[in-house]
Amino acid sequence: MRRLRDPLLWLLPLLLFLLLGMPLLRPIFAAAFPATSPPIYAADSFLALFLFHAEYVVLSSLAAALIGVSLGIVATREGGAEFRPILEALATIGQTFPPVAVLALAVPAFGYGPAPTMIALTLYGILPILKNTLAGLGSVPAAVREAGAAMGLTRFQLLRDVELPLAAPTILAGIRISVIINIGTAAIGSTVGAVTLGNPIIGGLVNGKVAYVIQGALVVGVFAIVTDLLFEHLDRRLRRFAARD
């Protein structure tokens, strides 16, 4: 019963349906927007747009996670402690900067196309991951760290076997925020020449075709929710040692 109540069970099929079966909704959109022809966005298939979109998000998030976690680890080591306040300030201030502004600033620097989108997504994605890595590693109890060192764990073993596993739920929460923001921001990448699920949205807005805007927004929205729920599952798995009673 508990598994049936999991919203993923119907949201994942919904996403698949939107990607493959959008043309089946033709009668509905035709009735609602009789002036739009064709009633379903047809310049590209939604599946192809989704794959491009997902590729940008996955690659930029992986790069952001790699850079963010690494910076967080360096700043919490003995030798890197002096960078910590700077990185912390940067991560906090950086996050108040809207992602759209980052994208806009990337264009003059890197031109049009997928490059500015990827770079903007990566740069912006680092911030929440870095912030949560610092918080997660910082919240490992001093006694646990001391006991680990006193048992004779090397610094690397302490990091790999104790600090990172304990910080993992917090780091994962940072990656989750970063990925969800990136799914939204990648759509705006269509304005600077990247092919994403933002194409029907931007195209629809420019040409006054509300039907396309709705179709694109539906897919991006369900994509973001499904991704978030997948992270939720991963999070529960990571925390199982704390939740079991």
């Binding site: 006694a143 646990v144 001391e146 006991a147 006193a150 048992m151 004779g152 104790v162 704390a242």
Partner: peptide, 19 residues
């Protein structure tokens, strides 16, 4: 590390690995 593995160490806050 070799030295510390030869010496048992117990503290007030215990410091068991929670995971």
């Amino acid at each position: 590390e070799a030295l510390r593995r030869r010496i048992g160490y117990a503290i007030q806050s215990v410091g068991l690995f929670p995971h």
